[in-house]
């Protein structure tokens, strides 16, 4: 199994290490309880998130997937977001993967927001993911860059200017 780099990068370093190990020694992976205590927090949270995203991905209906995105994002203008996603349904997959990537980098307890924005003069419209964060500005800037390098840079050719993200310091 070859992991797309976008997905692989959304996993924590510990999981990436385990995954690398797993690929080599598929039948014999054991870790002690002491080990697991050290990584449980990241690991279990990540496990839960991956499971949640996988479940949404397995949903065969495109419409139901769009509705399910509201479990992950607060839709600021639901009607416009639905219409925009129906114009380009490939964005749904990026919003699902993006959620995982953002949660890994920012580890925010705040719910992410999604907004449809339009610039009529420029004849341009897009979806913007808004990431609320209590972290200091310097750290937010660093994490924004990390998110770009771990996720967005790999999808930028596919999403063009239809999807972007900003942070909202709280």
């Amino acid at each position: 199994m070859i992991f797309p780099i976008t997905y692989y990068n959304t996993l924590s370093t510990e999981t990436q290490k385990i995954l690398q190990h797993h690929q080599e020694y598929i039948d014999d992976i054991t870790i002690t309880k002491k080990d697991i205590n050290e990584i449980t927090k990241t690991y279990v949270n990540e496990h839960f998130l991956i499971k949640q995203i996988e479940e949404l991905k397995r949903e065969p209906s495109i419409i139901t997937q769009i509705e399910s995105l509201q479990k992950l994002y607060i839709f600021k203008n639901p009607r416009e977001i639905r219409n925009f996603l129906l114009q380009d349904i490939t964005l749904i997959e990026h919003l699902l993967d993006g959620y995982l990537a953002i949660m890994k980098v920012f580890q925010t307890g705040e719910k992410l927001e999604l907004e449809y924005v339009i610039d009529a003069e420029e004849n341009w419209d897009a979806l913007t993911i808004i990431i609320p964060s209590h972290l200091p500005i310097k750290q937010i800037i660093r994490l924004e860059r990390e998110l770009f390098e771990n996720w967005f840079v790999y999808i930028i050719d596919q999403v063009g200017n239809k999807l972007n993200y900003i942070t909202k310091p709280l």
């Binding site: 997905y7 385990i18 992976i29 054991t30 870790i31 690991y43 991956i50 997959e93």
Partner: peptide, 19 residues
Amino acid sequence: KLGVDLLLRNKDESRISHE
């Protein structure tokens, strides 16, 4: 759409295996 799942299992009393 990639399909991957992470499972944690009790291998014995002191060890947990993950798959």
